[in-house]
Design a protein around this nucleic acid. Structure first.
Length: 174
DNA sequence: GTAAGGATTGGC
DNA sequence: CCAATCCTTACT
């Protein structure tokens, strides 16, 4: 198995982390010992209190406090009362940043992938650098990374809505 | 205590 | 296009 991504990787600025995530592998080990891994195909960066699309834009709350912790921890939240969102905290402690995992190979949609991987609130605060249930590893570098504006954040205003902070691997014909 | 809104999805 | 569905937050 490939080398697990370490603290140093996640403690960089969210834009650096997000740009490097497509092509990496997300590994999930279930309670029965079964292991699955998927290549990350699409992510979005949410960067600090100034980013009006970021959950930290209104300051620290009980919900987003994990975003202020050090990089490598998981930020999990429920959206529309239905879907669990899988986010990776990035940067040094005190910088509220996170990367939303929007797509895995063969699994499109942030809500659908968490359901498929059986990820919910129980993973809030899980440490990707130490967990025995979920972690990331080095991946493949053969993909071109495309950037585009983030999805579903009309409320954030034109400026933040247009930031090209979505990163995904170029579609392949096969 | 009440009310509004949402980093989505799936169905029409 | 539009509703489902319920937690978080911002009020009173």
């Amino acid at each position: 198995m490939k080398k697990r991504l370490d603290r140093e990787f996640f403690e960089r600025d969210v834009l650096e982390v997000a740009a490097r995530l497509p092509g990496k592998f997300l590994v999930r080990k279930y309670p029965d010992g079964r292991i699955e891994q998927f290549m990350i195909t699409e992510v979005e960066a949410y960067r600090g209190e100034e980013d009006m699309a970021c959950h930290a834009s209104k300051g620290r709350t009980p919900r987003n406090q994990i975003m202020y912790e050090r990089g490598g921890l998981l930020y999990i939240y429920l959206i529309y009362g239905i879907h669990w969102m899988l986010n990776i905290v990035t940067g040094k402690a005190g910088q509220p940043q996170a990367v939303l995992i929007r797509g895995l190979e063969g699994l499109n949609g942030p809500g659908r992938l968490t359901r498929r991987l059986d990820i919910d609130r129980a993973f809030l605060g899980e440490d990707l650098c130490r967990s025995e249930s979920i972690w990331l590893t080095e991946g493949v570098n053969s993909f071109k990374i495309i950037t585009a504006p983030r999805i579903g954040i009309d409320y954030a205003g034109e400026y933040w809505k247009n930031m090209p902070w979505r990163f995904f691997v170029e579609k392949t014909s096969g």
